[in-house]
Amino acid sequence: MNQVPMTVAGEQALRDELKKLKSVERPRITQAIAEARAHGDLKENAEYHAAREQQGFCEGRIQEIESKLAGVRVIDISAIPYTGKVIFGVTVTLINCETDEEVTYRIVGEDEASVKEGKISVTSPIARALIGKEEGDVAMVTAPGGIIEYEIDKVQHLAE
């Protein structure tokens, strides 16, 4: 089984979600099913069917999280000596060479990626183009619209 890289914070977020699903959501759904059963005929009981559907989603998510945690390789960026190079877990500020637009991304595991939060997956085209480069280097990123050149303005090696 391939191990999937994840930050310490990403692993903790998954563990917190799993704990909430098991200790809060699962009992709540079980209670809702019991209450719906008490109302009688299950064939035409919309509350019962809705609760069962919630139960399916909840149990599926629990299995998904447990599977992800089983194959995760937690990388603590604070334990890695800073070399100035772009590696997993660093925050990178890029300048688009054509538009001079500046963007900042943190390179994280696939499950943690969120462009809205400025986090990109280590397997994304941008991250793959950046890994191993240093401040001042130019990275060529193959995007659906063509090749984009980014200059690496800053590499920040932040602890979790």
Rank of each mutant, 00 (worst) to 15 (best):
T93M: 11
Q63E: 09
D153N: 12
G118H: 05
E151W: 02
I87E: 11
V24L: 08
E98L: 14
F88I: 09
E64T: 02
D41L: 00
A38P: 00
I80F: 10
V155R: 03
E59S: 02
K85E: 14
E59D: 13
S114G: 08
P125Y: 05
K22P: 00
A34Y: 09
A51G: 06
D41S: 03
N2P: 13
V155C: 10
D137P: 06
L158N: 14
H157P: 09
A50V: 00
G146E: 10
T123L: 14
L42V: 01
G60N: 11
K19E: 11
T93N: 07
V92Y: 03
H49E: 03
T142G: 08
T99H: 10
L14Y: 06
K22T: 09
G145N: 15
M1W: 10
K154N: 11
M1K: 12
R61E: 09
F57T: 13
I62K: 01
I33P: 00
K85M: 10
L69H: 11
V155D: 12
I87P: 00
I62L: 02
L158F: 10
I120Y: 04
S23A: 07
V74S: 06
E59K: 02
L14G: 01
S78R: 15
A70T: 06
E117D: 15
Y105L: 09
I75Y: 03
Y105Q: 04
E25L: 06
L18H: 03
S23Q: 11
G118Q: 06
K119T: 04
I77F: 05
F88V: 13
E112W: 07
L130T: 01
M140T: 13
Y150N: 03
P27T: 09
E35N: 06
Q156P: 00
I87D: 07
G60Y: 04
E25R: 05
V108D: 04
I152S: 01
S23E: 14
L158W: 08
I131F: 03
K85R: 15
V90N: 04
T93V: 14
G56K: 14
K43P: 00
M140W: 12
I33F: 00
E117R: 14
A38Q: 05
F57E: 10
K119V: 08
D76Q: 11
L69V: 11
S121N: 07
I80M: 11
G136M: 06
E64K: 04
A143T: 15
K116C: 01
E59M: 06
A46Y: 02
E11S: 14
S78A: 15
R15K: 13
E160F: 11
R128T: 08
L21V: 05
Y82P: 10
R73G: 07
L69M: 10
Q55M: 15
D111L: 13
E25S: 13
A70H: 03
V108P: 01
G132H: 04
K154A: 05
C58K: 02
Q3M: 15
H39Q: 12
V108Y: 04
K19H: 13
T83N: 02
V74Y: 05
G10P: 02
